[in-house]
Design a protein around this nucleic acid. Structure first.
Lengths: 340, 340
DNA sequence: TGTTAAAATGTAAGCGCTTGCATTGCGCGT
DNA sequence: ACGCGCAATGCAAGCGCTTACATTTTAACA
């Protein structure tokens, strides 16, 4: 008659190995503080019982989880995947586990996720972008959870960040478009509220337009939620007016792909009839036809540096310093070499 | 002089509200067991202190986490994203949190992740596909963690599954290709070891070939890791021989997109020179040019049903029953309507 | 061989919460 | 006005682990 087999505990292992629970614990966490012979006995008991330490108990006792949390706006598309992958690999190499949650671009969901991750004892947190309620930062401070921002660099922000200058990057790309002879340059932006990346990209686009005397272009902007369909709709919207832009710059690659699709559907040739650009350089940008001119972001490098910085903040209780990374433009088929 | 503000605990709240910790706990977990006046006091204290319950402590005491874990082979591409999204939405609606980990298609990583999730107290687990070491199932049984498999349906398997018949689906698609007049039909498969979906898709492809007297085609198969590049290389590989297949069927859409790219690069027209098919019907399949003929999988439905089934298993300690879902073929441009 | 310090191990006090059970307080019937 | 039953609250025992401190063992030295 087998009794209900509750998962074995440290104590079970200790009993089986004929030692104290403290010794078993040390065996697992600091093997060199235990003599080889004992260690062997204990390990045998662990294996025999199929013991797995209870994480919650360990956390409670040790007040460390070796877990860091990341909250990203979306998992549906690959924008954050590559960087996050690198982040998690680097974390893993340093003995940390990554927990990921997604906020669906909703501030209130993000806040909920932050609390969930903190409650779960995350030793540190990675957030995307700076733009969120001050109260969130207050909370994080009170809970003293080291926090780092990625995908956006802002020197004077409340928490350190590892990222790039979204504004300058977008300005650079816009200048390139202008150089190609375009004068009517519209923009499809993601939702800017609560999203500094989106807002800064719009700002960069405007910067370039104004500097080049294209102020009238600067009103031709549509803001739309994230998604291919949304990008398509926005494109149609911009093309509906009497004056059709000759270039459509999108706040991210996903929107740009939508625009590309819609252009195709509407029988407009890209880049002949209209040039289209994206931002992020996700894998998709190379795959679509025509391939997409976009801003290349150092995803992996960002992920790795973020991991290092965050672990440093966690382990040495240091404040953490911001790092600005460089972006570059990837010229591809969706923007003509020369319009004129 | 402010002392180091440790995060507030239940006791702090209790003290501030002038009640016992038990009352505060009940306020949070069973508000109706506490009289309104007290509840107000307690809630005020909670807010004032910015209290967040310590999850680990709660888990230890209650032995329930209201968390379920899912381990998917990859996050890099969208194959599992849609289904997982639905899974998590349904879970959320039922008061559960989803923790996701990815195994990079490596069995040993998967096992590690399973242990990590179990140690973290996951009340239930969602795994992709049935094919893994028996010892893993032994472990799960001993820890008595309800487990469900998705993306593959196998009635006689050790744990219940919500999925579809990969073999029959692939056979159906292959038959459609044969009907189009193709006789030299090669396959690019994902790695089959430890991946029943991949293996079953290959089996389905072979079934159709053999039934239609195309046995010689059945040797024209390349197995390759997951990824667009890998798909491209596999395509080139298959086209390198003296006899060029007129149709290339891929084990998933990502490989198919790679094949598509390579065909383009090699100057082969799709579907005129070579037809290409995928499997999964991810968003990408509609976006590439030409769009991809593929097997549509009921991602969202699968996710929702999986969530319901798993929660049922967790809450009612029921064994859980398997459900088979239907797939259908999405005919698109990459497979000619009629070759002859 | 006796001392003593260092190494190995054991003891037991929590970590912050939930919950069974004991206690208190209240409204009601008589 | 009294006792009853039930609702509201408090008390305190863990949950499984880590770790400071106490104790025992070992080994090294005179």
């Amino acid at each position: 008659m087998s009794k209900i087999a509750a998962a074995p505990t440290l104590e079970d292992v200790a009993k089986k190995a004929g030692v104290s629970t403290a010794t078993v614990s040390r065996c697992l966490n600091a093997p060199d503080r235990v003599v080889a012979e004992t260690r062997t006995k204990v390990m045998a008991a662990v294996t025999a019982l199929g013991y797995t330490p209870n994480f919650a108990a360990r956390v409670m006792a040790a007040k460390r989880t070796f877990t860091v949390g990341a909250i990203i706006p979306t998992m549906e598309n690959a924008i954050f995947a590559r960087g996050l992958q690198a982040f998690q690999e680097e974390l893993h190499a340093r003995g940390y586990t990554l927990l990921v949650a997604s906020s669906a671009y909703k501030p209130e969901v993000e806040e909920e996720q932050i609390r969930a991750l903190v409650a779960r004892g995350a030793d540190g947190l990675l957030l995307i972008g700076h733009d969120r309620a001050e109260s969130v930062y207050d909370y994080l401070e009170r809970q003293s959870v080291p926090t780092l921002v990625a995908w956006s660099y802002q020197a004077k922000a409340r928490v350190p960040s590892i990222g790039f200058d979204n504004r300058a990057a977008m300005r650079g790309l816009t200048e390139a478009v202008i150089q190609r002879g375009h004068t009517c340059i519209a923009m499809v932006s993601g939702v800017c509220a609560g999203n500094d990346r989106a807002a800064l990209r719009v700002a960069g686009w405007k910067d370039a337009l104004l500097e080049n005397g294209l102020a009238d272009s600067a009103t031709r902007i549509v803001e739309t939620p994230y998604g291919i369909e949304a990008g398509a709709a926005a494109f149609a919207n911009l093309m509906a007016g009497p004056i059709k832009p000759t270039a459509i710059m999108c706040g991210n690659d996903v929107l740009a792909v939508g625009a590309l699709q819609k252009a195709h559907e509407m029988g407009m040739a890209v880049p002949k009839d209209v040039a289209i650009t994206g931002f992020d350089d996700v894998e998709l940008a190379r795959i679509v036809t025509p391939s997409l001119t976009t801003v290349q972001v150092p995803h992996r490098d960002m992920g790795i540096q973020a991991a290092r910085a965050l672990v440093d903040m966690v382990e040495n209780k240091r404040a953490g310093t911001s790092v600005q990374l460089e972006t570059s433009i990837r010229f591809r088929a969706s923007l003509a070499r020369n319009t004129q």
